[in-house]
């Protein structure tokens, strides 16, 4: 053999060629499957939004039901100013559409750090995010029982990783109509239960504090004592707290928009 298999040069050469070949193969796979995966993610998002208003959708009929129940897609800015309002056919590839706003990416990018630095301080949170030009989506839906509700996406952190969900509010913008949560890596049987109906069925009818600061809470131990509280999951304390934190924080950001909407409705 002319080549010494154990020489340093050969070892390096082999490693370099291998990495190049593997990298190309993986990049090619990822690129060719990207569209299909994005479509799946959009279907899942529709299913979750529909889940928050109590409509059970499957991947097959998600976009059909979404078009049926979701009437308007709205984007607001940090201070509650409306930026965009769309209705009609949805193009899931359109990143400008409020549906295309990636709240999880925004959360990872800047909101998470800001929320950590400004615990329970919404004014502080808003001022530290003021340079970010964030857009916040919300979805106006007509429920199967003909109510006008707003679905707000929420994102936060559980014990092991990201948690997220959709909370539907009645037209008074403070009573919860329904909720749907999901997680990436919470503990099965404990924190992971936020995904189950057992947890979310306690949400309808709960109140966000109108006008004043939002003080919604997921409580640990014992039954909730007021309509601003919902029962947490035993053994899933940190996940439960994470759910409370994300709902509270997100609703506080949307609060000024809700306020302006209810005032506009009252004048009408």
């Amino acid at each position: 053999m002319a080549i010494n298999k154990n020489s340093t040069g050969y070892t390096f050469g082999f490693a370099i060629v291998m990495v190049a070949v593997v990298g190309t193969a993986l990049a090619f796979t990822a690129m060719s499957l990207k569209d299909k995966q994005a479509a799946n993610a959009a279907d899942k998002k529709m299913m979750d939004i529909l889940g928050a208003i109590g409509v059970d959708a499957t991947r097959a009929n998600a976009s059909e039901l979404f078009a049926e129940y979701v009437t308007e897609r709205i984007a607001i800015d940090l201070n509650g100013k409306e930026l965009d309002r769309r209705s009609g056919a949805l193009d899931v590839k359109d990143k400008e559409d409020p549906f295309g706003i990636d709240v999880q990416k925004d959360y990872r990018g800047s909101v998470k750090a800001a929320a950590k630095a400004n615990k329970d301080d919404i004014a502080g949170l808003k001022s530290s995010l003021s340079d970010e030009e964030l857009r916040f989506p919300l979805f106006r839906c007509t429920t199967p029982d003909q109510q006008d509700v707003f679905v707000v996406p929420v994102v936060g952190s559980g014990l092991w990783g990201p948690i997220w969900g959709y909370v539907a509010l009645k037209s008074d913008m403070q009573t919860i109509y329904g909720a749907k949560f999901d997680h990436k890596t919470e503990t099965p049987g404990l924190g992971a239960e936020i995904k189950e109906d057992m947890f979310t069925e306690k949400w309808p009818g709960k109140q966000l504090n109108a006008g004043g600061p939002v003080v919604f809470e997921v409580v640990k131990g014992g039954a909730p004592t007021s309509s601003y509280q919902v029962d947490g999951i035993t053994g899933g304390t940190i996940t439960s707290k994470g759910v409370g934190e994300m709902v509270n924080r997100t609703m506080s950001i949307y609060a000024s928009y809700f306020k302006s909407q209810t005032q506009a409705n009252a004048q009408r």
Binding site: N6, T11, A15, L26, T29, A30
Partner: peptide, 25 residues
């Protein structure tokens, strides 16, 4: 062809790429 000294890494890279392909599919 695999150099003895990095054979475990080579095996890992091959397995990892196959797994990523499975995951993506």
């Amino acid at each position: 062809l695999i150099p003895d000294r990095i054979r475990i890494i080579v095996q890992l890279v091959i397995v990892a790429s196959l797994v990523i392909i499975v995951d993506q599919v």
